[in-house]
Design a protein around this nucleic acid. Structure first.
Lengths: 294, 294
DNA sequence: AGGAGTTACGGGCATCGTAACCATC
DNA sequence: GATGGTTACGATGCCCGTAACTCCT
């Protein structure tokens, strides 16, 4: 069992293909094949089931050893970075998971400062839904990820609060009100955003013991806003996920005011590399001031 | 960075010497030297400070990477055992830490059953004081260890309760009483057992706001008992640490009755090998019945 | 002298790439 | 035939052991 063999196996599972793993790792397919075959003969067990139609399927045993293998790879990275740090120089990569609104609003601020402070550290961004980010964290594909929750829990490092707002077309009957009550939303066709905050929205309606009359379920935020412009319906979204300007669209507070908490998740921070630690620390310090204000 | 290099480094730190590590690993000193040198050139940092008078001293960097390295080695062992298990056969080793009375009274029962159920698994015993066992667990030198505490905590899997008893020479003035009150012990010369339960005894005296008049502090239990026989003093020990028969010695209950809880510690059970898990499960099932009785 | 670790030298093994070889769509 | 994985075969490199060497007590 070599450390490259583990890397290869992990990558093959991640990519679902020998060829793509080879490309990602800058080696020949042959080497990938050798690596997996080597592991399999050493263990005497099949790791991957090569299936023409389904691509690559991880065997039961493969699934069982995948996690410890990824732990090993992470610790190896940790050791290497400790070594670099001991020499006075910094190196390594941070794999950050994020969902669209966090990538757009929170990440740039953090990254720009971080890159100045640590110019030799590479940041790799993985974008997906809230759910995917959590899975990636569990699978140790990323080191740290953004997450949004209705209540700040102990497993999240809070960064900021994000207000939920109602989005209406100009001239809508609800326009005159200063804020919009959540109850009044249910009477109008509702466009549900499926970009990740769907469960939050449902939770909030559930709390007021009502549910929106969902007419459309759309993922892309631009599409949703255009549909609102066309008068096809109204919606409710977190403020952070809106673009800076929203022409021909009204953004109104919802009553009662509802917040979602956006923060960082880093479940294995005690076994994280120094780089990851300082990334988290930086994010925390950058947003600490704001949090007090809001 | 190779596994063998990690193994070698870990062993050298454990042994405090290149030569002894080489012997323990069945390899030449040269190979050990090579392994360490290889790591050091790869990292560009010194791992060990070779000092003629003090032997081997771990460098600051070495201390920092030792723990992640041991984690890696444990996970490698876990993977190997998963592989063996997947083939239907069992293999591997369990490193058990124990203090004298547990080794003598609890361990044999567990081991004898376990060896019948898992004949191909090697059990390596590390004996030491209570304190040492805890250190070894932290340093991942052992997988599971016996521990004794005055109260059962969440970090311990309780196995049995152990009564504290007073030990007197025959013909002692306290003989007539049915049980001995803790307060009456302080008036007589006391032999403190330093085999590990010293802090517990002091805690209990402290609770009754008195302290024994310690005349001797002895480690070996046989020596202590002989000294009691000679009338040099009395002592208080956990019942489990006494031999089966105690000729010419009186064993009396102490009032108020005091217990210590003996159990297993396995702080990293979620990353333990299957063998370790079944060892813990077996121990638990073996002593569960007794616990209900007592 | 002798214990303890380092350095030379050689053998063996395994990993990787090129390239030929299958198998499926 | 194209795609994707497996199998020869040769080369590089490294890991280990024997043995000579150095340093300190």
């Amino acid at each position: 069992m070599t450390w490259t063999q583990l890397t290869v196996f992990s990558k093959v599972v991640e990519m679902g293909s020998f060829t793509r793993a080879a490309e990602a790792l800058h080696m020949s397919q042959s080497a990938v094949s050798h690596a997996i075959a080597g592991l399999e003969t050493e263990f005497g067990v099949l790791l991957l089931i090569r299936d023409r139609r389904q691509g690559i399927v991880v065997s039961d045993f493969g699934r069982r050893v995948l996690e410890p293998m990824r732990v090993i790879l992470n610790r190896v990275a940790q050791i290497e970075q400790e070594a670099a740090a001991a020499q006075g120089l910094e190196a390594g990569t941070i794999r950050v998971g994020s969902f669209p609104s966090a990538s757009a609003r929170l990440l740039p601020k953090i990254v720009s400062v971080f890159e100045k402070q640590h110019p030799h550290i590479t940041i790799v961004l993985f974008e997906g839904t809230d759910q995917e980010v959590i899975e990636w964290l569990q699978d140790r594909i990323i080191d740290v990820g953004f997450a949004a929750q209705s209540t700040p829990g102990p497993d999240m490092i809070p960064l900021t609060k994000d207000k939920m707002v109602a989005v209406l077309p100009k001239g809508h009957v609800l326009e005159e009100n200063d804020g919009v009550s959540i109850g009044s939303l249910v009477d109008h066709p509702f466009i549900m955003s499926t970009g990740g905050c769907e469960p939050l929205i449902e939770e909030w309606f559930g709390r007021s013991q009502c549910s929106p009359s969902i007419k459309f379920a759309v993922r892309d935020m631009d599409t949703i806003l255009n549909m609102v412009r066309e008068g096809l319906g109204i919606t409710m979204v977190p403020e952070l996920s809106l673009p800076d300007t929203t022409p021909h669209i009204l953004v109104k507070n919802v009553q009662p005011t509802m917040w979602r908490y956006v923060g960082l998740r880093c479940p294995f921070i005690n076994e994280a590399t120094p780089a990851v630690r300082s990334f988290v620390a930086l994010a925390q310090s950058l947003f600490h001031a704001e949090q007090v204000v809001s």
